[in-house]
Write a protein that binds this DNA or RNA. Structure first.
Length: 481
RNA sequence: GGCACCGUCGCCAAGUGGUAAGGCCCGGGUCUGCAAAAUCCGUAUUCGGCGGUUCGAAUCCGCCCGGUGCCUCCA
């Protein structure tokens, strides 16, 4: 079955049709690196990572480009505040971004271009726009795009020009012919990074860099262009206008990107997360409290187009659920070890079908539940398992990992993931694992001697610390409540 | 004000014409030295409200109520 996706340009769900059969050119708007990645970035790039993984799982050869915007007002301002070189600051936060995305199990893009590496392409693109009559240089060192010359300007955002005029702004010093026009090139101001251009020294405007890097690394039209829903206007709107206009020929938006996808926001207490509201969380802050894979799992619990509310409670639930999934996997691995794989159950294909339908990760989590429950029941059952039953468990483990691969979870050995998640939870609660182990050892002695009073007292002590214990055939394990 | 989106069980969350997935919580059972974990059973005649279309609607249309976002930097 073909992949269906919600295309912002079409305003509805439609069948995904790449330009070239079997190949996908995917561009995702990357971060402006002036600070650490926040939860909104986490959600956004985890979502597109799932899209990438699923397209590849469906056999597409995907070239994934995600840029770093490393020339920008905010970077310059931040660097000036700190007395740091803007390029150095941007490079530092780009590295930090990669680390955070790695922690979230996001695959690295095939190409991660930076604005500073594409000035010639940007200048050439602007020159083409001027030559084509879509851009003008009023002589103050700026170059602007003439919005009204581009007929499909409002198609992506579905607004009308008059409304946009009402919100349009002209900064002092700008020389726009029309308030709707936007800057392609900005004349250098004192103390700002600058590059040479036919219009004098300056730097690229906000939107042109993505067009230039997309065209440079993927060509046009690309198959999917994606980003946060806040980018629909003006960023993606302007990208379409300039990228289509620069090519010459027809002026249909599809000449730049065939499909546009946008993810919903992360909210805190039902409100947009923003620095001004003081409800802003960086990925690193959250990763101090929670496992990266747990955060990823949490982010996949809501369909990518919906906004979702971040809360410690729900994040905690997600972490518990992830632990359950790994524990089940561990049991299935252990009990099914060495068995010949049982027959395939169709689980993987069911999951792929759900992902085919506009990447419905939330539905996937529902689909998978029953298989985990059944595996647990079988693995925990008393008595011996038949070879067929062991084969079933082995098959389950294999399928669960395949489903996990589609979502970017469950790829660690359970024996590695569980202690890692547990120890981070312990750290969060101020629990010393060594102290827990000592009590467990003492309790094992007591139980051996049938001294259940002492055994229970030790368990109570652990419970008071926030530690729950599980007696099993392979000894006693523990987890943080 | 304009444009868009959303409102499904106490909480989280799928479902866009065929008669309400899943997770958490909660109650009961099995297992257990007792527990925990695991598992089983139960838990929305109902999808913000009111109308309409239809043999049939949470799903389509209209109005109303409530919430959010974008229109300015933003994932």
């Amino acid at each position: 079955m073909a992949i269906q996706l919600y295309d912002t340009l079409a305003g509805r769900k439609r069948t995904f049709e790449p330009l070239e059969a079997g190949k996908v050119r995917l561009y995702v708007c990357g971060p402006t690196v002036y600070d650490y990645a926040h939860l909104g970035h986490a959600r956004c790039y985890v979502v597109w990572d799932v899209v990438l993984r699923h397209l590849r799982a469906r056999g597409y050869e995907v070239k994934y480009v995600r840029n770093f915007t490393d020339v920008d007002d905010k970077i310059i301002r931040r660097a000036n505040e700190r007395g740091e070189d803007p390029a150095a600051l941007a490079a530092r936060f780009a590295d930090a971004f990669d680390e955070d995305m790695d922690a979230l199990r996001c695959l690295r893009p095939d190409v991660a271009p930076r604005v500073t590496g594409h000035l010639p392409e940007i200048v050439a693109l602007i020159e083409r726009l001027v030559a084509n009559g879509f851009a003008y240089a009023p002589g103050n060192g700026d170059v602007y795009f003439a919005v009204r010359k581009f007929p499909e300007y409002t198609r992506l955002s579905k607004r009308n020009l008059d409304d946009l005029v009402a919100g349009a702004r002209v900064e002092p010093g700008e020389a726009k012919h029309d308030p709707l026009d936007f800057a392609l090139w900005k004349a250098a101001k004192a103390g700002e990074p600058r590059w040479p251009s036919p219009w004098g020294e300056g730097r690229p405007g906000w939107h042109i860099e993505c067009s230039a890097m997309t065209l440079a690394h993927l060509g046009a039209p690309i198959d999917i262009h994606a980003g946060g829903k806040d980018l629909v206007f003006p960023h993606h709107t302007n990208e379409i206008a300039q990228s289509v206009a620069a090519q010459g020929g027809g002026l249909e938006a599809e000449r730049y990107a065939r499909h546009w996808m946008h993810n919903g926001f992360v909210q805190i207490d039902d409100q947009k997360m923003s620095k001004s509201l003081g409800n802003f969380f960086t990925v690193r802050e959250v990763l101090k409290k929670a496992d990266g894979e747990a955060l990823r799992f949490f982010l996949l619990g809501t369909h990518y187009r919906n906004d979702f509310n971040f809360s410690d409670t729900v994040l905690g639930e997600a972490e518990k659920r992830l632990v359950y999934l790994y524990e089940t996997l561990e049991k299935a691995d252990r009990v099914g070890a060495g068995a010949a794989l049982g027959p395939a159950t169709g689980l993987v294909e069911q999951v792929r079908a759900a992902l085919d339908d506009d990447f419905n990760t939330a539905a996937v989590l529902g689909i998978v539940s029953e298989a985990f429950t059944a595996a647990n029941a079988l693995a925990d059952r008393k008595g011996k398992r038949s070879p067929e039953e062991k084969g079933k468990l082995a098959r389950f483990a294999a399928e669960a990992r395949e489903v996990g691969a589609a979502l970017g979870i469950l790829q660690r050995p359970a024996g590695e993931a569980l202690p890692s998640i547990r120890d981070r939870a312990a750290g969060r609660r101020g629990i010393d694992p060594a102290a827990v182990e000592a009590r467990l050892a003492a309790r094992a002695e007591a139980r051996k001697a049938k001294d259940f009073a002492r055994s229970d007292a030790l368990r109570d002590e652990l419970a008071a610390m926030g530690v729950a214990i599980m007696d099993g055939p392979a000894g006693t394990t523990w987890k943080v409540e």
